[in-house]
């Protein structure tokens, strides 16, 4: 049995899975990124290493907003965008899926599939209202753990309508509703409905949401949101078993595909990367008036990759 690693480094959480060649999730890690992608990738890989106990790795894929950074760090066989990765994982668990709702930390996506092929997708445009961060902030303001949010929302009988178009307005609206004396659970479920309304009216605008609908991403943990979606759509949603690590699963599948085409050779640097001393730094390029902020990652003083330039001056690394 071959084992593939999928690494999804998102804005809020870092996910790593070890996937067997028959599609079983052998192990998975889900951590908050906390703005430290390099450390979190190392930390989650060392957890996976302990659990796998010496099983060789046949391929690695990365995805998420830090996919290039993670890809360079571990020596990925494939670096893929989140949308493609999410769709591939979903198709594995629900082969006839027609709609994927994915809500992550700072972006939310919709993927429309027909006959197993993605035919359309959408992402939130310029603001993060309607994403996991929105709920995170509101939970913070209500002084509750985000993990308890869903349970509390389920107790609501008369949800309060909260303006959810923008996090800032939602806060003032929520404070106003609290001061009018509405019960907590009704406000909490009102927030869930606001997020769903926002999602359906922006990300899902003009798209045909047909069943089966798969709901994945970290926010699918939140039972309040699941309830709000099912009430809003009038359709049951399917929440796959490993919904929070679907991006990582998808990219592990892609790593399998990639390595099988390349004579089963992986570029994985090995679990030694968990102890390697990576250094990230940045500088301002003085080459032209753009003054791009170039970020670079190096290992033992040797630069592995650079980003952030508007031209390719710094892209070549020798």
């Amino acid at each position: 049995m071959k084992v593939y690693l999928g690494i999804d480094v998102g804005s809020v959480t870092t996910k790593v899975v070890a996937l067997s060649s028959d599609g079983q999730v052998l192990s998975s890690v889900y951590l908050r990124t906390e703005g430290k992608p390099v450390q979190m990738v190392q930390q989650s890989l060392s957890e996976i290493r302990q659990r796998l106990q010496g099983v060789p790795i046949a391929g690695v894929g990365t995805t998420g907003s830090a996919r290039y950074l993670a890809g360079v760090m571990v020596g990925a066989d494939v670096v893929k965008n989140e949308i493609t990765a999410q769709a591939i994982a979903s198709l594995h668990y629900v082969p006839d899926v027609k709609t994927i709702i994915e809500i992550g930390g700072q972006d939310s996506k919709i993927i429309i599939l027909r006959d197993g092929i993605a035919v359309d997708f959408g992402m939130n445009t310029v603001c993060a209202a309607g994403t996991g961060s929105f709920l995170d902030h509101q939970a913070d303001r209500l002084n509750m753990r985000i993990e308890d949010f869903g349970e509390i929302a389920l107790e609501s009988n008369n949800p309060v309508r909260i303006a959810g178009r923008c996090t800032v307005f939602a806060e003032s609206d929520m404070v106003h509703k609290q001061q009018l004396g509405y019960p907590l659970e009704d406000i909490v479920y009102g927030l869930c409905q606001a997020l769903v309304r926002n999602y359906l009216n922006n990300v899902g605008l003009g798209k045909e949401l047909l069943s089966p609908i798969v709901f994945q991403g970290g926010v699918a943990f939140n039972k309040g949101i699941v309830r709000a979606f099912e009430e809003g759509l009038g359709i049951k949603t399917i929440i796959p078993p490993h919904h929070e690590v679907m991006g990582a699963i998808g990219t592990a599948f892609l790593a399998e595909e990639e390595t099988s085409q390349n004579g089963n050779v992986t570029k994985f640097r090995g679990f030694e990367v968990t102890e390697a001393k990576y250094a990230t730094s940045s500088f301002e390029c003085k080459g032209c008036p753009n003054q791009c902020e170039i970020a670079q990652i190096s290992l033992d003083g040797k630069v592995l990759a650079r980003w952030g330039g508007r031209c390719d001056r710094w892209e070549r690394v020798d």
Partner: peptide
């Protein structure tokens, strides 16, 4: 840039699959 890159890459993947 990251958001733009994701959208463009995903669109090209989709186009090629379709």
């Amino acid at each position: 840039e990251a958001g733009l890159a994701t959208r463009v890459e995903a669109f090209i993947d989709m186009v090629r699959k379709r």
